[in-house]
């Protein structure tokens, strides 16, 4: 790998937590070209050239991994004049191959890429059967796919871009150390907003400015109501009181947001009719959060719940 590519991989480790749910089998490429030890190095060379791939896993008749041939090996074979020989004596043998198991975590994968400098890693099951292959391209593709489920709004985008900061601030914030915690547990829409009402009282007691409290309350209320309407009413509100503002997390374990870009559109709503009759479902929930917060991150995946992070900054002369 080139220095630039390595640098890319090391940046990925900053996002380990965010993509922690990705495993080797989610990331790996499954459509593979393989050869057997009885094939010739020259055949591997032709395939690599025509298919523009940089390495070929070598398997036995049962599909078990026995070795690997890389472009580097082919180049050396050409120099040594052995390109017409069989693969079996020249492949990287199984015991020297760094590999992944299907359930290996994103974290382990990124760390492995950082430690070894190979271009590709096979994924094998407990019987040594080859399931897939992971290159840095596969990692990037898997991550780009995930970005469909992340929304980021940041009023101070420029400022943040020049700083070393993760997408989610959550790494800094430990649940037990929250200044405020409220467990959302109601399916009744008339009870939705209780957590926000309590948070507002706490903020008032601490003497925050009225306009600031208002912003925090509007954002938190919309997020809380979403948990009740869309996520079966089970969720959690955490607030952290920082020197320069307040950070609010609202998370749930509901069905997640299908299409975040669409949900951000003003007027778009998936709320059911009986909810609309109560005045909800204007399709302004997420846009309201964006308007209220200085920084809004929504991380959601269909079937895996939703995490909302809102940063409210105290501003001189404003709050």
């Amino acid at each position: 790998m080139s220095e630039i590519e390595l640098d890319l991989i090391s940046h990925l480790s900053e996002y380990k937590r965010i993509f922690s749910f990705l495993t080797a089998e989610d990331i790996m490429k499954k459509e593979l070209i393989t050869l057997t030890p009885e094939n010739y190095l020259s055949e591997a060379r032709v395939i690599m050239r025509d298919k523009r791939i940089s390495g070929i896993p070598i398997v036995d008749k049962e599909g078990k991994l026995v070795g690997l041939v890389s472009t580097e090996r082919i180049i050396r074979a050409l120099e040594e004049g052995i390109i017409s020989n069989k693969i079996k004596e020249y492949m990287t043998p199984r015991e020297k191959i760094v590999y992944f198991s299907p359930k290996d975590t994103f974290e382990k994968i990124v760390e492995t890429f950082e430690r070894y400098r190979y271009g590709r890693y096979p994924v094998i099951d407990e019987h040594n059967k080859l399931l897939g292959l992971i290159t840095k391209h596969d990692i990037l593709r898997a991550i780009l796919k995930q970005f469909h489920s992340i929304y980021i709004h940041d009023r101070r985008r420029e400022e943040y871009l020049n700083r070393e900061v993760s997408i989610l601030a959550s790494d800094k914030f430990i649940e037990d150390k929250a200044s405020f915690r409220y467990d959302i547990n109601t399916q009744s829409i008339s009870e939705a907003g209780e957590g926000t009402a309590l948070l507002k009282k706490v903020l008032e007691k601490r003497g925050y400015h009225r306009d600031f409290i208002r912003r925090v309350s509007i954002g938190t209320y919309e997020a809380e109501v979403n948990v009740v309407i869309h996520a079966g009413g089970k969720g959690l509100i955490l607030a952290f009181f920082e020197e320069d503002g307040v950070v609010v997390f609202v998370r749930d374990w509901g069905p997640g947001i299908e299409d975040i870009d669409l949900a951000m559109k003003e007027g778009f709503s998936t709320a059911p009719d009986h909810i609309r009759e109560l005045g909800f479902g204007a399709g302004m929930g997420l846009p309201n959060m964006r308007r209220a917060a200085d920084r809004l991150v929504i991380l959601s995946q269909s079937g895996k719940g939703t995490r909302v992070e809102m940063v409210f900054n105290l501003k001189e002369g404003r709050d």
């Binding site: 008339s190 005045g279 204007a282 399709g283 302004m284 309201n288 308007r291």
Partner: peptide
Amino acid sequence: DMISDILALAKPGSLLLTGIIAPQ
């Protein structure tokens, strides 16, 4: 009549005219 619109638009100290009758 839409809660999110009220949240987006009402200024502090406003009187709200609405058709919403729920405790929300």
